[in-house]
Design a protein around this nucleic acid. Structure first.
Lengths: 226, 226
DNA sequence: GCATTCAGAATTGTATACAATTTAGAATAC
DNA sequence: GTATTCTAAATTGTATACAATTCTGAATGC
């Protein structure tokens, strides 16, 4: 057998993508043999990858019953949004005193370039990707890799929820394209307190809308024939 | 073969304990066959458990080379302490508005009971456990399970560093037993701002001392014959 | 001495086999 | 019709085998 690159990593990446991109339904049980066949590997490396995803919180596991797509209760969603606040606000605070003018300027330019797309795009998934990228780039300015890692992890876990939220937001165009600029202005002014306030209210607003969007989506599940 | 409980979980717990309790030296390569024999299992479930620990950040993995005990650079330590600030301060902020008087009272009583031990104990490991428990109990008052989980994860990863720190602190009795009470007083008064300040300065002081302690410990490595 | 080469040993990567357990569904009783 | 029991099928749990790769250390050349 000839091998050039890591198979487990490939399987892990593929599974992670599937989990994040809603290929599994909440609470769905994953069939190991079927998944292994689909990813052209055997159950041994597959299970190693699945175990990583359990540790990351994307899947759950029950002895003798297997791996399941993790579902989120409203409480879970609240907890995760609060965690986002903790991570992003602290990262922003650090960025205010650490990021160089050049780095801030570069992010402002990226934002200016992305904004037209953000305002015009019809593709909800693309919007979500843009939004996530802004927040990740912002967090990266803190220079703290752990905070960045945690933000990425939280993002992955609420991605499904945020997509529902954005779909809803597009429909009624209730988004606030100013929010990101406001955060950037405070950062550029090295105004840690103002940045904290702007970030908090931005995430909080998104959380409220997401909760509402999820409520609507759930209610629609009960009248699926329209 | 008769089985009553999960083997992978048992192996995972054992490995985690070993990793947290310094059974592996930094950057040490773990021998799968030896570990499997030691834990009385085979390599298949062992590797599943090891993969979980990689996802948690306690170990690292290199294709075709295996699993390694993760070592921490000074930068890593700084990042982790900053993450602690982010998580604990936000949890405390939430606790200030959410925790019931009864819960706060119960934690104050626990602290009062633990303090004599904290002041007198010679056992550094016991001190560390007490300190970790206070911080975890405090974070639990936020009602946010994700923040709690993250704090536990960070604690596990800097446990080795904190032990070095505490050993050093005991030697020169430079600890501040007032710090925890101060945080509790602000919490009881529902003073979110004061609590934030107290927590920040507490963790920051510990971080500085830990960095110093690690520096001393490292320097001692170069003169090991005394 | 120091670097390089190259078997052989040790170790990791993973497919497979089979035991243990759970699940699904038919048969039965009420 | 509903609940219960039981058997067969499906699925998970893990030990093992062997291929692929890396590591070790002796032999060689400079």
């Amino acid at each position: 057998m000839v091998k050039r690159e890591s198979n487990v990593d490939r399987v892990y990446d593929a599974l992670r993508q599937m989990a994040v991109d809603f290929a599994f339904k909440p609470d769905q049980r994953l069939n190991e043999s079927a998944l292994a066949a689909q990813l052209d590997t055997s159950r041994t490396p597959l299970r190693e990858a699945l175990n990583r995803l359990v540790a990351e919180g994307l899947l759950t596991f029950q002895t003798n019953r297997g791996f399941f797509c993790r579902s989120l209760t409203p409480k879970d969603i609240l907890d995760l949004y609060e965690t986002r606040v903790a991570v992003e606000c602290e990262a922003l605070r650090l960025s205010c005193s650490r990021a160089s003018d050049d780095e801030i300027c570069a992010l402002e330019m990226w934002l200016a370039e992305a904004e037209p797309m953000y305002l015009s795009s019809e593709d909800t998934l693309e919007l979500l990707t843009l939004d996530e990228e802004f927040h990740l780039r912002l967090a990266r300015l803190s220079g703290n890799n752990e905070l960045l890692r945690m933000l990425a992890s939280v993002n992955d876990r609420i991605r499904y929820i945020r997509l529902i939220d954005l779909k809803n937001m597009c429909a009624r165009s209730g988004g606030d394209p100013e929010a990101h600029r406001k955060i950037m202005r405070a950062l550029a002014a090295r105004d840690a307190k103002g940045a904290d306030t702007a970030m908090r209210s931005h995430i909080e607003k998104r959380r409220e809308q997401a909760t509402e969007a999820v409520r609507i989506a759930f209610s629609q599940l009960y009248v699926p024939m329209d």
